[in-house]
Amino acid sequence: MDALLHSEMISLTSITEADLPILLQWYRDTEFLRLFDALPASPRTESSLKEWIKHTTDSHNGYLFGIRRNTDQQLLGFVELDRILWNHRVCGLAIAIGDKDHRGKGLGQHALELVLTFVFDELNLHRVQLTVFDYNTRAIKLYEKLGFKHEGRYRDFIQRNGERYDMHLYGLLQHEWEKSISN
């Protein structure tokens, strides 16, 4: 499979209905759901995932990329750009590595480097923003390593297992990204 966005390790490609079985597995994993979403951890249906893929693919204000290993094209995760405000050149970003065996191996960094280059060079956006929960320390370290700046927090935003956690807002501007890749 020839991909426009690729590194030595991974490629960012489209997600199709053929990927539904693996997506359904991820959306049955409580740990995955709690890292990725503030909604209560509950399984998603095949039809809701089909609708999400179709909605994002058909949208003029978002992009959805599958993160695939180059050696066998296995779907390892996804990156979503959403809520693009073209007039302000701003978008939201979300990333998920599905199977816990693939987390912490550099896939997220490779995927974010590819998608941020796409955001700033191809889409000509100025700002990318994201949110992350206190307990997702691995993601926070990665975002900061890539140049994202901590811009604020929603205190006690989420409750998990009887404890409250903050949700942090991070942003990255085009000139900050260009500076981080030149170092």
Results as ranks from 00 to 15, higher is better:
residue 1 M to L: 12
residue 5 L to M: 07
residue 6 H to P: 04
residue 6 H to N: 05
residue 8 E to Y: 08
residue 14 S to I: 06
residue 16 T to N: 09
residue 17 E to Q: 12
residue 19 D to K: 10
residue 20 L to Q: 10
residue 21 P to K: 00
residue 22 I to R: 00
residue 25 Q to N: 14
residue 27 Y to N: 13
residue 30 T to C: 14
residue 33 L to D: 11
residue 33 L to S: 04
residue 46 E to C: 14
residue 51 E to G: 11
residue 51 E to Y: 12
residue 54 K to T: 08
residue 55 H to W: 10
residue 56 T to C: 05
residue 63 Y to L: 05
residue 64 L to F: 01
residue 64 L to N: 00
residue 65 F to S: 02
residue 67 I to H: 06
residue 67 I to L: 08
residue 71 T to L: 02
residue 73 Q to C: 09
residue 76 L to T: 09
residue 77 G to W: 01
residue 77 G to P: 03
residue 78 F to E: 11
residue 80 E to D: 14
residue 80 E to F: 05
residue 86 W to C: 14
residue 89 R to S: 14
residue 95 I to W: 03
residue 95 I to P: 04
residue 96 A to I: 04
residue 99 D to S: 11
residue 102 H to M: 15
residue 102 H to G: 15
residue 104 G to T: 12
residue 105 K to W: 02
residue 107 L to Y: 12
residue 108 G to S: 07
residue 111 A to G: 01
residue 122 E to A: 08
residue 123 L to Q: 11
residue 125 L to K: 00
residue 127 R to I: 05
residue 131 T to Q: 13
residue 131 T to F: 05
residue 133 F to T: 02
residue 134 D to G: 15
residue 139 A to L: 01
residue 139 A to K: 00
residue 141 K to T: 11
residue 142 L to H: 05
residue 143 Y to N: 02
residue 145 K to R: 12
residue 148 F to T: 14
residue 156 D to F: 09
residue 157 F to M: 14
residue 161 N to K: 12
residue 163 E to W: 11
residue 164 R to T: 07
residue 166 D to C: 05
residue 167 M to D: 11
residue 171 G to M: 07
residue 173 L to I: 07
residue 173 L to H: 12
residue 174 Q to R: 01
residue 174 Q to C: 01
residue 175 H to K: 15
residue 176 E to A: 00
residue 178 E to N: 15
residue 179 K to N: 14
residue 181 I to E: 06
residue 181 I to R: 11
residue 182 S to R: 09
residue 182 S to P: 05
residue 183 N to P: 11
residue 183 N to W: 05
